[in-house]
Write a protein that binds this DNA or RNA. Sequence first.
DNA 1: ATACTAGGTATCTTAGAAGATACTTATAAT
DNA 2: ATTATAAGTATCTTCTAAGATACCTAGTAT
Lengths: 119, 119
Amino acid sequence: MEIKDKQQGIKIVADVLDIVGGKWRGKILAHLCDSPKRFNELKSKLSKITSSTLTKELRYLEDIKILERKIVSQSPNIVEYHLTTHGKSIKELIQTIIEWGIKHREIVFENKLRSNQKE
Amino acid sequence: MEIKDKQQGIKIVADVLDIVGGKWRGKILAHLCDSPKRFNELKSKLSKITSSTLTKELRYLEDIKILERKIVSQSPNIVEYHLTTHGKSIKELIQTIIEWGIKHREIVFENKLRSNQKE
DNA sequence: ATACTAGGTATCTTAGAAGATACTTATAAT
DNA sequence: ATTATAAGTATCTTCTAAGATACCTAGTAT
């Protein structure tokens, strides 16, 4: 599909980055791309996230239909988060992001470190 | 290239999203993908950005070698920002982001709006 | 009875990103 | 002389995402 309206294209970039951006969403999605995960499983893999933040991010991604909250059992209380059919499409995007990152990490991330030190 | 280490892959996702994320960087890059632009040209196309924010974001992208500041003339004072040879590789990433956005905008952005209203 | 696990919620605080506003230097135009 | 344009810089303020901390409900294990 061609992009006719450039301003439109730029708006789309901003919208998508809003979905996948922030401190945690990309990581959460990257984890869920692999396989469905439970709340505390995600929490421990993300290591530094707090419950409240994780809940908030998961609710957001649920709201926009990227992922689904599935109650596996009520006793014991087991909940599983997995990508919706629709949300699975994000895998390719994540893959592209990783590929770009691998190709460019030397040049970019080296200077990024230096740049952060200055600040 | 295969990703062997999954934690590594997730780190890369976070790093790349850090570069391209935030409120303005994606937009700035999308504009510069098209053609080099001058400071005030960018400023007016981004409409709501302030000088200080634009300067800061441009310096960051310059630091990590994604773009280059080129003094076109000193009198009058004309400066042009353009992607480095290296930075041009970001075009494909932006293109992929736009494509994903176009495919999924109905389902995602509709619910995003709704989700934002709730907040 | 007590404590532990799973999956959270409810407040409050904090740090950092972004915005508002004013100013600057150098040249050109009227 | 004055005003305008280009490309910023310097402070200060505000806003908001994320963190800290404490607590909750329901079942399970000891």
